[in-house]
Design a protein around this nucleic acid. Structure first.
Lengths: 235, 235
DNA sequence: GCACCGGAAATTGCATGCAACTTGGTAAGA
DNA sequence: TCTTACCAAGTTGCATGCAATTTCCGGTGC
């Protein structure tokens, strides 16, 4: 039946709404009407409210007191900040991983990296993207720090839509794999500072390539999405 | 009178409960009975539930589905992870601050640091602790990254109880100020890598001094595992 | 004596209802 | 025509009530 029986309705709602957001089914800026969502899922407003609050504290939705919730509107500035933070956290995890990964973890990272080389040469975008998530996840885990792991995972989820777009660029796969090679080599050799630098360089390049896409999307976007309201975003 | 009039009851409740936790009025592990809290604050359970969920996602309380909420129980291992993460984030902010602080921000940081020198020499623990929060906050802000700022502020709040204990140690004030000097000098000169290293060293020293206190506190309450987890797994 | 089992109390999760606030639209006045 | 006041509709915040689950406690069997 429902294998999620142990979880509460609000948890399942939060998971479903989050899925709808990261997959793009709910566009940024969309209003999240409590009653409408409640009707849609056949529950009352109470668990919907809890789910929205939960997503609010994870940054996926923006809850404004007495004014309802909307799918988090990521401005260009905020996206840049997210990418910088992501890069720094990933680089930190890479440095810690170089210091404290177990031999088994290192072997697995190496094997995963090798397998991704085949995927990159084969040009399988979807498979590479999935393996890429596992690759970065392995490095987060290798840092042996649950706090950083949670933070990195949350950031990655928020950046998921923008990150996927980046792989559509031709030639990014081989380049991504080459950058990974530098990271893996440093981690396997235990060269912490080098692992940090290599990962930071990698994510910074991802960021700059995404920024190109974003510039087109944000500035050239038609009114179809209808952002909630042009609030003065001077900062 | 009530300057929090614009905020909702659940927000005020969250702030008050958080205050009670970080000040130690609510001990770690305490059960947080919804009805009891509701009666205590003269509200219904609904806003209490929302406040508890909010605090749950910030890490201050642990909410277990269908089993109620308790003040987050921080084990020795988790505390170590929190300090490591805090140190890495602070160091990252220091490096970014060295790169991107405005001249005004640098002057203000320098002035604050000077003022803290007087407080340290005067031995005013409370004033120094307050200024210390402002000092680190200035560096978070100097990184010009709201994501890292939020993360650092959240971590700092969770570590607040343990951090305060550390200042009670004699001689820590002068030592703290000396370590700050290295950080400030690097930031003002724009030496990013040096700022990173100096801040990491500073926070690591704070961590090790707190670990001594914690060892006594934790073992006094309940027999805990060895403070240093087995990093290299045998098997 | 100890483990196991069953029922009652307590507590959480959710549904429903109402009041307060926000918002969109309309009309009056300058 | 633009601004402002106001009113109505819609939405959120909160209180209350009920059902489901957990927890506690006493009894029973081994």
């Amino acid at each position: 039946m429902d294998e999620a029986a142990g979880r509460t309705r609000s948890e399942r709602l939060a998971a479903e709404i989050a899925e709808a957001i990261v997959t793009g089914a709910l566009a940024p800026g969309s209003r999240l009407d409590e009653q409408a969502i409640a009707d849609q899922y056949g529950v009352s407003r109470t668990p919907v409210r809890e789910a929205l609050r939960h997503l609010g504290s994870s940054g996926l939705v923006e809850v404004r007191p007495r004014r309802g919730a909307v799918v988090a509107q990521v401005t260009a500035d905020q996206l840049a900040e997210l990418f910088v933070a992501m890069g720094e956290i990933e680089a930190t995890c890479a440095r810690l991983a170089a210091q404290s990964m177990s031999p088994l973890e290192r072997r697995r990272l190496d094997a995963l990296h090798d397998a991704m080389g085949d995927l990159a040469r084969g040009g399988d975008l979807a498979a590479y993207a999935q393996a890429n998530t596992a690759f970065h996840g392995a490095i987060y885990a290798g840092a042996h720090n649950g706090v950083l792991l949670d933070f990195a995972a949350g950031l990655r989820r928020r950046l998921q839509p923008y990150r996927e777009a980046q792989f559509r660029l031709s030639g990014r796969l081989a380049r991504s794999h080459a950058e990974h090679s530098a990271v893996v080599a440093a981690i396997l050799a235990g060269r912490a500072a080098e692992a940090h630098a290599a990962m930071l360089r990698h994510v910074t390049l991802v960021e700059s390539s995404v920024e190109g896409l974003l510039a087109r999307e944000v500035t050239g976007e038609r009114r179809a999405a209808r952002p909630e309201g042009p609030r003065s975003r001077s900062g």
